[in-house]
Design a protein around this nucleic acid. Sequence first.
DNA 1: GCCAACGTTGGC
DNA 2: GCCAACGTTGGC
Length: 159
Amino acid sequence: MATKYWLMKTEPTTYSIDDLAKEKKKTTTWEGVRNYQARNLLREEITKGYRWLFYHSACKEPAVAGLAVVTREGYPDFFAFDPDSKYFDAKSKEDKPTWFMVDVKLEEKFAYPVTLSELREQKGLKDMVLLQKGSRLSVQPVKKAEFDKIVKLASKKSG
DNA sequence: GCCAACGTTGGC
DNA sequence: GCCAACGTTGGC
């Protein structure tokens, strides 16, 4: 059974959950993933309806900022074909794309983000890919129990 | 800004 | 196909 829960990283200075909240229909393309392992996950594992933990990385307070849902399964990252895009990659051809992306919609912005240090405090989350040493993958599978736990933590903080 | 961990590149 | 050098990620 394929996992239906994922975590995606983004640097809030590049693209934050507030940026997503401002989008038309709160939906955006998730382009610019330039790592083969993450690409394979986008292309082969992730499909419409799967849910994401929206994670802010490389910032003051790394944290799960909210929840999102995939609205379109993996398709060629057309930003790679555009020489004016910062994600341009001459090696990726339209008839044989190297890179893939999905579309994603905001479900919920947490009133109180669940910070990385809080995640580390949770016994039940020890095995999360995110918390493993040297884990840099920007697209990560998450177990249902882990996903549920983090949602619960967020609601506890706001309540 | 530092630096550990990891991925990619390229010479051989 | 090995592996050193280099580049990137991302927490601290």
